[in-house]
Design a protein around this nucleic acid. Structure first.
Length: 517
RNA sequence: GCUCCGGUAGUAUAGUCCGGUCAAGUAUGCGGGCCUCUCGAGCCCGUGACCCGGGUUCAAAUCCCGGCCGGAGCACCA
């Protein structure tokens, strides 16, 4: 009864929307649209990761939605691991999700694992059996699949309660091997919604679970576990991706049989970025092709990948709030949308430094030997400055000087103007042309030729182009950096002037990853 | 194949429920200008969309029908 059709969800959303829009303009703060059926202080949402793989940006955005709505209504958030497939679940992933949520600034009030509640699941299963709503089925998987597709019942559905109870206890006692018996819901074999056709509630898995070891062999399936857990946790709003939409009916039905209240569902299509699939299969293909070596590759949509790339949590949060809608339509975000948000956040805090990609040597024989005090930020003096000692030879961007004609005037930022005299392979000669700023002269960054560090910048691009793995998805730019590059701490994001925002990725040596321009 | 669900500018969204105020708003992108000792940020101007075809109506992005295109599901995964 709490189940709302998408139209209904939108209608409710719309009803309160005008207030929101006005409020948004008034305080210039970005807010999510109102949550249907939400009451201050009574909202409970959940973060439901399956600890079977790496956390990615889709988890992050979904996580923000659940977290921000709970916060917006002074509600509570559960972190609940959906870990009822012992074969898929791995210990390392539990912590990786906690770490990911923490990094994002997503806080949760309570935490549990579905696998904590096995005894409870068994209790509810027994209740269903006793009320004639569940039966033990000993069909083979293939037969069951065939019958479900055809909408036909199997002979096991007619078993009596006592027999089912007996068989169920046999299952729990270990009398059946894997695949030999399941507990099924008495659903509706004729339902158009195939999930309602007597779905399996429990199956046998002979594989140790990372948390409970070999204590349990009879494991609940997703729909059963989640139905019960959402009720147990008091979840009022389920915000999840649309691949679960068909399960609303089933989960509500299971709860109705147990006398449990249902949450409100809000579903939306997956969040994906162009050229960057989140699918484990596709990412693994990239690793297997040798293009990437690990799951934290900066081209990957994994949390570790985007973190290394220099995307900050606030950007993902703001992006989720402003660019997201509860739409079922397929969408593929353009990275530039996220970059724009990230840039606005980074711009006031990132120090400006000189990095010269693909350097060429510039010699200015008559240059005065001077040093300059260069601010780390054009309009935020609190970020400080550094002194650069300049001689008469420099490294400058090859591109700028190769394109420039002889006789052309170019300014070395903060330092002086030079006039190009001659260009030879790997060397440009120029003459000193004054220190004052001249209008309409190209300004470039520079690095003293006798005091610099070698810098390498990784520039990530789309992993897939036109559905094919992109072999040139990671460009490596070699260059030199001014001495102050040594002061950039690992993890810090700076702006290399005229190059882009880059995060220092290495502990030793100067390897950076470019986030964006 | 079957069952659902969608299709608003390059991209992402607002608007669709209760048809007119939408000659369609916002962000980003793109073009131009201003500012700036960065090709960054900021400010200003501009560009650009209701999938197609019918129907209902005085009036349709909004309602109805058909088509096309796209997504999801059809597990003893979640």
């Amino acid at each position: 009864m709490n189940k709302l059709e998408p139209e209904e969800q939108r209608r409710l959303l719309e009803e309160i929307a005008p207030d929101l829009l006005e409020a948004k303009k008034a305080e210039e703060e970005k807010k999510l649209p109102p949550l249907p059926g939400a009451e201050k202080g009574k909202v409970v949402t959940r973060l439901p990761p399956e600890p079977s793989g790496y956390m990615h940006i889709g988890h992050a955005m979904s996580g923000f939605l659940n977290y921000l709505y709970a916060r917006m209504y002074d509600g509570k958030v559960w972190l609940r691991f959906e870990d009822t497939d012992p074969r898929k679940v791995k210990l390392e992933y539990y912590e990786s999700f906690r770490r990911g949520y923490r990094w994002l600034g997503i806080e949760w009030d309570y935490e549990k694992n579905n696998s904590d509640d096995m005894e409870l699941f068994y209790k509810y299963a027994e209740q269903l059996i006793k009320s004639g709503k569940a039966y033990v089925c000993t069909c083979s998987a293939e037969k069951m699949r065939r019958l479900r597709a055809a909408g036909e019942e199997c002979e096991h559905r007619k078993r009596g309660v006592d027999e089912n109870l007996h068989l169920w206890n046999e299952m729990l006692a270990g009398a059946f091997g894997e695949g030999e018996a399941t507990l099924r819901l008495v659903g509706d074999m004729k339902s158009k919604n195939t999930t309602m056709r007597d779905p399996v509630l429990f199956r046998i898995i002979n594989h140790p679970h990372p948390l409970t070891g070999s204590k349990y062999r009879v494991w609940p399936l997703y729909d059963f576990a989640v139905s019960i857990e959402d009720y147990l946790c008091g979840v009022t709003h389920v915000l999840r991706t649309s691949e679960f939409a068909l399960r609303d009916e089933l989960q509500n039905y299971i709860r109705s049989l147990l006398g449990m209240r249902n949450p409100i569902y809000i579903e939306y299509s997956r969040f994906e970025f162009k050229g960057t699939p989140v699918s484990k299969r596709k990412l693994r293909a990239v690793i297997e092709s040798g293009l990437a070596s690990s799951w934290d590759d900066p081209r990957f949509p994994t949390i570790e990948g985007i973190r290394r790339r220099g995307i900050v949590p606030e950007a993902i949060k703001e992006f989720t709030i402003t660019q997201t809608g509860f739409s079922y339509a397929k969408r593929e975000y353009d990275w530039s949308l996220l970059f724009a948000v990230n840039r606005k956040i980074l711009d006031p805090r990132a120090r400006r430094l000189f990095f010269v990609p693909n350097p060429v040597k510039l010699v200015v024989e008559d240059a005065p030997k001077v040093s300059v005090e260069a601010p780390y930020h054009p309009d935020r003096s609190e970020l400080g400055s550094r002194r650069i000692e300049a001689g008469n030879s420099f490294y400058v961007p090859r591109e700028d000087f190769e394109k420039a004609a002889e006789g052309r005037l170019i300014r070395l930022k903060y330092l002086m103007n030079v006039r190009i005299l001659e260009k030879r392979e790997g060397l440009v000669k120029a003459e000193f042309a004054g220190r004052e700023v001249v209008k309409n002269v190209k300004i470039v960054q520079w690095v003293p030729a006798d005091d610099f560090v070698d810098v390498e910048v990784l520039v990530p691009g789309p992993l897939y182009l036109d559905g094919e793995v992109n072999p040139e998805s990671l460009r490596k730019v070699m260059g030199v950096g001014e001495p102050a590059v040594k002061t950039v701490k690992p993890g810090e994001v700076v702006q290399f002037e005229r190059f882009g925002f880059c995060r220092r990725d290495s502990e030793k040596g100067y390897v950076f990853i470019k986030a964006h321009d």
